[in-house]
């Protein structure tokens, strides 16, 4: 009993710290998005609030806090308020199983960096959580009682379900290689440059494309395609409810980046042997180094997401569906078969 309380307290402290890190990360992604989009378009971007405009996302969020929260008269009030909470909650909940570094050993006890990084169904947990994210967007579209919102919500549901299939199938290759659902085990299996991206190039491409579709980012941002759907599912949202969708989008982007890093790019594994730094396994210094490596990889992928958004035009809806069902799904099935065959032959 006493033991359980300590575990809960440990998890709570970790959760508070990680929650803050995520929300800060989301704010930083907003800043990066604005800055990179500006640079691509020969502009400078935000540079007035704080040094180089780094406080701009905070200014934006404070503005959203003080804005009037308009709820349409004909909307379903309860679900209208619930939808953004689901969206943000799910985006944040995924971080429960993400390992930020390996572990720190203090007084003989191993403290893993992450709320529950050794959860033996971590991968499934993430897939389940991202699927629940569809509810947030679909409910937002449905409860707003607005045709554009509804169209946006339906599109997003169709899109996410279609791409989840190929996403899940492309992950099977990794599960076959590592033999585990636990994210920490998958990362440990990628030591010494045995990154999954080299073993699973096809699976990586499928996963990358599906990740773009899952997070509703360009070129697959059809749920909020401005020219045809006004604002999509967030047409009828204002104030902090809109802000929650906004943060959820960027938190999702950070999740996807973290996920790609963990599964395909070695997660927190240092790019060289840890002995080179002269740090013992379990020391705080090594954990910090591992966290920095993880962080740099994640930021790189966030920047890649943003870079793609400002380079590639949006897909048409039928093109999106054709790509999902006729191209990615068969390819991911092929990937599963190839991986299984390779493991049978070489092991």
């Amino acid at each position: 009993m006493n033991n359980l309380i300590w575990i809960l307290i440990e998890a709570l402290i970790k959760a508070v710290v990680i929650l803050n890190v995520i929300l800060l990360g989301a704010a930083t992604s907003v800043y990066l998005e604005r800055k990179i989009s500006a640079v691509i378009q020969d502009r400078i971007g935000p540079n007035r609030v704080g040094p180089f405009g780094v406080l701009q996302p905070f200014a934006d969020v404070f503005k959203l806090f003080f804005k009037e929260d308009i709820v349409p008269k004909a909307s379903d009030k309860f679900f209208h308020s619930l939808a953004p909470i689901i969206s943000l909650g799910v985006a944040v909940a995924v971080y429960a199983v993400i390992p930020f570094a390996h572990y720190v050993e203090i007084g003989g006890t191993k403290y893993y960096i992450g709320i529950a990084p050794n959860l033996n169904i971590g991968l499934l947990f993430i897939l389940a959580m991202t699927s629940v994210g569809v509810y947030g967007i679909t409910l937002a579209g449905w409860s707003s009682n607005n045709k554009y919102s509804l169209m946006g919500g339906l599109r997003s549901a169709a899109q996410m379900i279609s791409y989840e299939l190929s996403m899940g199938l492309s992950l099977i290759g990794i599960i076959l290689i590592s033999g585990s659902f636990s994210l920490n085990d998958i990362v440990i299996g990628q030591a010494n440059w045995k990154w999954n991206v080299f073993l699973q190039p096809l699976g990586f491409l499928i996963f990358l494309v599906s990740a773009f579709a899952e997070t509703n980012r360009a070129p697959f941002d059809l749920p909020e395609a401005e020219p045809e759907l006004v604002g999509g599912y967030n047409t009828e949202y204002s104030g902090m409810k809109f802000g929650m969708f906004f943060l959820a989008e960027y938190a999702n982007m950070a999740t996807s980046s973290a996920f790609i890093t963990l599964l395909y790019f070695g997660g927190w594994q240092l790019p060289f042997s840890p002995d080179l730094l002269g740090l013992a396994e379990g020391s705080i210094g090594l954990a910090v180094a591992q966290f920095l490596v993880f962080f740099i990889k994640v930021v790189f992928f966030i920047m890649f997401f943003i870079w793609v958004r400002w380079s590639i035009p949006r897909f048409r809806y039928d093109q999106l569906m054709r790509l999902g069902w006729k191209v990615l799904l068969p390819l991911s099935l092929l990937n599963v078969v190839l991986t299984a065959a390779a493991i049978l032959i070489f092991k």
Binding site: I36, V39, I40, Q41, D42, R43, I44, L205, W307, V308, W310, S311, I312
Partner: peptide
């Protein structure tokens, strides 16, 4: 798509290095 996407990304990357148009 993929080679063309890479080409597009290359184009935007080259754009990033150009001088800015903004007047402060």
């Amino acid at each position: 798509y993929l080679p063309e996407i890479a080409r597009g990304l290359g184009l935007t990357f080259r754009r990033m290095l150009r001088p800015k148009m903004t007047r402060q």
